[in-house]
Design a binder for these strands. Structure first.
Length: 284
DNA sequence: CTGGCA
DNA sequence: CCAGG
């Protein structure tokens, strides 16, 4: 076990903002990353880590190298973003594994966080390697390329199952260079990702932001669309949904600038929080 | 397509 | 029936 001193870092916000699906909170947060179990807990500015993974990896994984003062001053364009930065200060993007991230967001299409979390867990338990009791690695493309469609049925993936097997085979057979996308500029990377069946701009943007370090990516889902309409004006109302979301993302890139991916996460966690409040109120 | 809710 | 990171 070791501890890392952090500034402007909030572990709970970082792991609860919909970017990653394999962390669970009990007393400690527990997740499987890069084939190893990580247990993490924050005590003020100290991040406690219990894992075989070294501190360099953790530092990179949680993007502790990002200069948040600089990023905050860059995206702080108005009173809304100013209040969100104060409210969720320390929320960081995560540098995820591209393959796990791609599969996770193929699962995300027309799906809820709850169901996505279930499906990913199921994929790992069925096809991953057991690292320690109850914790499984995420199966490599070569592993998923060899399984049968019927084997994925129980993971409740529906129409997403063949998409996952298809891209697993393409990567395993070197017909698609997923890892090379890291070295492409944002738009070229997106052009490559949307060639995958089942990957549109939204899913491509998530993978580019969460795995390929393209901070100028701005994924627009239903929550982001609503909050953008509400605070920045619905200037794209008549367009069809996918077109409208594309226009919203282009606007956000111009408006928030080169770190708009960070702005997007602060908007997203606020939308999630509002939704949770609504659900809790309904349950009273 | 799946899950939650009415 | 609706929502859906």
């Amino acid at each position: 076990m070791y501890s890392i001193h952090t500034d402007d870092f909030n572990l709970g916000y970082t792991l609860s903002c919909g970017q990653v699906f394999r962390w669970e909170k009990n007393d400690w947060w527990t997740g499987v990353v890069n084939g190893a179990v990580i247990r993490a807990k924050q005590e003020d500015t100290e991040l406690l880590i219990d894992s075989s993974i070294d501190r360099e990896f953790i530092w990179k994984y949680f993007r502790l190298d990002d200069d948040m003062e600089m990023i905050y001053s860059d995206i702080n364009k108005d009173s809304l973003m100013d209040s969100l930065i104060r409210k969720y200060r320390g929320l960081r993007l995560i540098r995820q594994d591209p393959w796990e991230c791609l599969v996770s967001f193929i699962c995300s299409s027309n799906n809820t966080i709850r169901n996505i979390t279930y499906s990913i867990k199921c994929i790992c338990e069925r096809f991953g390697r057991e690292i320690e009791k109850g914790y499984y690695s995420f199966p490599a493309p070569e592993v998923l390329a060899d399984i049968h469609l019927g084997d994925l049925r129980s993971c409740k993936l529906g129409f997403r199952a063949p998409r996952i097997l298809n891209i697993a085979s393409m990567i395993a057979n070197s017909e698609f260079d997923l890892y090379g996308i890291k070295y492409l500029p944002y738009r070229e990377g997106r052009n490559e990702l949307v060639k995958i069946a089942g990957v549109g701009n939204k899913i491509a943007d998530c993978v580019l932001l969460f795995a390929f370090e393209k901070l100028e990516s701005f994924p627009v889902d239903t929550h982001i669309e609503q909050i953008m309409d509400r605070f920045y004006g619905d200037n794209w109302g008549s367009a069809k949904k996918s077109k409208k979301r594309y226009e919203t993302a282009e606007f956000a890139r111009r408006y928030f600038g080169r770190y708009c991916g960070y702005a997007q996460e602060y908007l997203y966690i606020e939308a999630l929080g509002l939704k949770l409040k609504y659900i809790q109120m309904n349950q009273l």
